[in-house]
């Protein structure tokens, strides 16, 4: 196990190094940050001054060498726009994103798994067919559109829930958290639902497919022959076997939402990380883009690691080596 962890850690370092290098090359192809940051009528002198201030006046190779040295010293550079450490900016935004993503994934799992089990176990009932069609609708529904519809219905027409922002927050160890106040919870609901809907549909369909596959297995029939009740057959014997693909996708989607929940964050003016990335790309804020994508790749490696561990919990046949 220890050996496995060390191996994965080394893998992670390599992945991050490769990602950082590729991203570094790509951001150099984006527009000139000086031109983008300065007003359109800025003079060449002003541009030169700004470039020097951002450390863009040396050759890309020199910049890369400096970047590597700095990264080794734990310094990912300051944002060109905010003039603050890139990592600090990202971590400032992280709690907000985690809040809606965790809630969304929780809602998704809470609804998707029982429904998926039901639909997988009773594929031919009217309810199952309806649920399945509805899930297809959820998957194909554009997030953007769905979010706006929620706002129009629940904020503008009914006036039940706020349209945007985080509401009252509680500061816990420097993190601003919405879910600890009633007002904050009201602000959380719509964005979390928007994020959850597609996840819910995906997970439902995966659970269903897994269940249908597993329910054909002999050990399910054997369990029934042992006199196990239908409920225990589904949840005790079948579900655990059906969960492997669900866990894999769940993990990846979780990571995906944390770093790329941009659309939902934009619609609900939710000050999360995804928006930071898009804004940074639009104005070529290189240090933030690089730090962000390095963090994203690290997150994915960590999530994969957790998923691997979960595999062994769920399925004893899988051996970490």
């Amino acid at each position: 196990m220890l050996f496995y962890v060390i191996k994965r850690f080394i893998q992670m370092i390599i992945v991050i190094a490769i990602v950082a290098t590729i991203v570094f090359i790509f951001v150099n192809m984006l527009g000139d940050p000086a031109v983008l940051l300065l007003p359109p009528e800025a003079s060449p002198e002003e541009l030169a001054k700004a470039r020097a201030a951002m450390g863009l006046d040396s050759s890309p190779w020199e910049q890369y060498k400096l970047f590597v040295v700095n990264v080794i010293h734990g310094d990912l550079g300051n944002s060109f726009v905010f003039r603050e450490p890139a990592m600090k900016l990202i971590f400032e935004r992280m709690p907000a994103t985690l809040e809606i993503v965790v809630l969304a994934m929780f809602i998704a799992a809470l609804i998707a798994i029982p429904l998926g089990v039901y639909v997988g176990a009773h594929p031919n009932t009217f309810a199952s067919r309806s649920i399945l069609s509805l899930s297809l609708l959820c998957i194909s529904m554009p997030t953007f559109w769905f979010g706006i519809v929620l706002i129009l219905v629940f904020s503008v027409q009914l006036g039940w829930l706020p349209s945007s922002g985080r509401g009252d927050v509680v500061i816990v160890w420097g993190m601003r958290l919405s879910f600890l106040t009633w007002d904050g919870i009201k602000h959380l609901i719509l964005p979390a639902i928007t994020l959850a809907v597609q996840q819910l549909a995906t997970q439902l369909r995966l659970t269903r497919a897994g269940m249908m596959e597993v329910l054909r297995q002999d050990y399910i029939k054997f369990a029934k022959a042992k006199g196990v009740s239908p409920h225990d057959v589904l949840y005790g014997h079948a579900l655990k076997n059906a969960l492997i693909p669900v866990i894999t996708v769940y993990g990846l989607e979780f990571g995906g939402l944390v770093v790329f929940a941009t659309i939902t964050e934009t619609i609900f003016a939710w000050p999360g990380m995804g928006k930071l990335l898009i804004d940074s790309i639009n104005i070529s804020d290189r240090p933030v883009i690089i730090a962000y994508l390095m963090l994203a790749s690290m997150l994915f490696v960590v999530i994969n690691f957790i998923v691997d561990i979960l595999y062994t919990v769920v399925d004893p046949r899988i051996d970490l080596r």
């Binding site: 002999d218 054997f222 022959a225």
Partner: peptide, 16 residues
């Protein structure tokens, strides 16, 4: 009680 044909698939793989 019943004994199944294929012992390789009759036991639930995820339980002891």
């Amino acid at each position: 009680s019943m004994i199944f044909q294929d012992p390789m698939t009759s036991l639930n793989p995820v339980y002891t």
